[in-house]
């Protein structure tokens, strides 16, 4: 089997264009609250979704728009939902962290780790009501320290559920470097529960596609649950307006805001503690430096990598189509919102 790279890239471009539109609307103040984009996770979403069939289920986290777009949920109804319109996907009552599509058996949640047990339940129902169908859970590596998620790993194995756990490892849990609060290795952790575990470069869609094919295929055949650890970048920070990214994007303003209180803390009495405090200050500096290097030096955009597999002409055609689709949906949604 070889992947249909054109189709994979088409889905990735749709996801990316859609989220760029979300960012634009959010910046204009038309979307309220937090906005966690899945920008950088498109290869993982597209590579996994390519193996899903009708009646397969998805349990999603707070970055749920790429999988929903990839699964064919109507873009206009998603946009209307984010703008709090009564004709939105959930009547304007759920918003971006709480998107539900009963038709597609897709549910998202803002509670970290909760997608894993939900997917186990979806898989349990599939086994009884829709044999041959599977459930997929998406979550980040930050969720891998949540008790309910680890309990779900065991549950899936103990009950031999047709479920695939997809861990999008972007190395950061909000402002915390995950490695600094995580023991051991997540792949071995998953294996120790008896899951068939795979590691993949989540910026390479063709590799995700191949890996997910194995995991989903096994689950569908009733040969047991799987775990995919896919590394990917967090290109827009934890959420739009991420204060750590703002340090790089508007350094002067942020330094003026954060600097003086930190200096006061450094120099507060007793002054004898100054050397130790300078070391503590280093912890903050190191976290920022690590984030900066990852973002501005090491970051690899999965879309650019996938585009490199296509001819220039094909790439452009796919991107134009995606842009057109998103623009049309946005125009209709904005007309509905403004006409209200």
């Amino acid at each position: 089997m070889v992947p249909d790279v054109q189709e994979l890239y088409r889905q990735m471009a749709r996801m990316r264009r859609f989220e760029e539109k979300l960012a634009e609307l959010w910046n204009r103040g038309l979307i309220s609250g937090e906005m966690h984009l899945g920008v950088g996770e498109e290869a993982v979403a597209a590579g996994v979704l390519a193996h899903l069939e009708e009646d397969d289920a998805m349990a999603l986290d707070h970055r749920s728009t790429p999988p929903l777009v990839g699964r064919g949920v109507n873009m206009e109804s998603l946009l209307l939902e984010m703008m709090g319109h009564p004709d939105g996907l959930c009547g304007g009552r759920g918003g971006h962290m709480h998107l539900f599509s009963k038709e597609r058996l897709a549910a998202s949640s803002g509670i970290v780790g909760s997608s894993a047990p939900l997917a186990c339940g979806f898989a349990l129902a599939a086994r009884q009501l829709r044999p041959g169908k599977v459930a997929v859970a998406f979550f980040g590596e930050g969720a891998a320290n949540q008790g309910m998620l680890l309990e779900s790993f065991n549950l899936a194995v103990a009950w031999n559920l047709p479920v695939v756990f997809v861990c999008k490892d972007n190395r950061w849990a909000i402002t915390t470097r995950s490695r600094s609060v995580t023991g051991g290795c997540l792949l071995r952790r998953a294996r120790s529960f008896g899951l068939r575990a795979f590691r993949v470069d989540g910026t390479r869609v063709e590799r995700v596609w191949a890996t997910a094919g194995k995991a989903v295929g096994r689950a569908r055949a009733g040969r047991g649950p799987g775990f995919i650890l896919a590394s990917c970048p967090r290109m827009e920070g934890h959420f739009l307006g991420d204060p750590m990214l703002r340090v790089f994007r508007e350094p002067v303003r942020q330094t003026l805001e954060i600097g003086p209180p930190l200096a006061r803390a450094l120099l507060s009495r007793p002054l004898a503690a100054l050397p130790a405090r300078a070391l503590h200050m280093g912890i903050i500096g190191k976290a920022l430096a690590t984030l900066g290097v990852e973002k501005y030096v090491l970051e690899r955009d999965p879309l650019r990598r996938a585009a490199a597999l296509l001819s220039e002409e094909t790439r452009r055609r796919i991107e134009d189509e995606a842009s057109r689709e998103v623009e049309e949906a946005a125009r209709a949604a904005l007309a509905a919102v403004e006409g209200r």
Partner: peptide, 12 residues
């Protein structure tokens, strides 16, 4: 570490 960064600097 980020939310209480001033306390982190003072108390480690």
């Amino acid at each position: 570490a980020m939310l209480r960064r001033e306390l982190l600097v003072r108390f480690g």
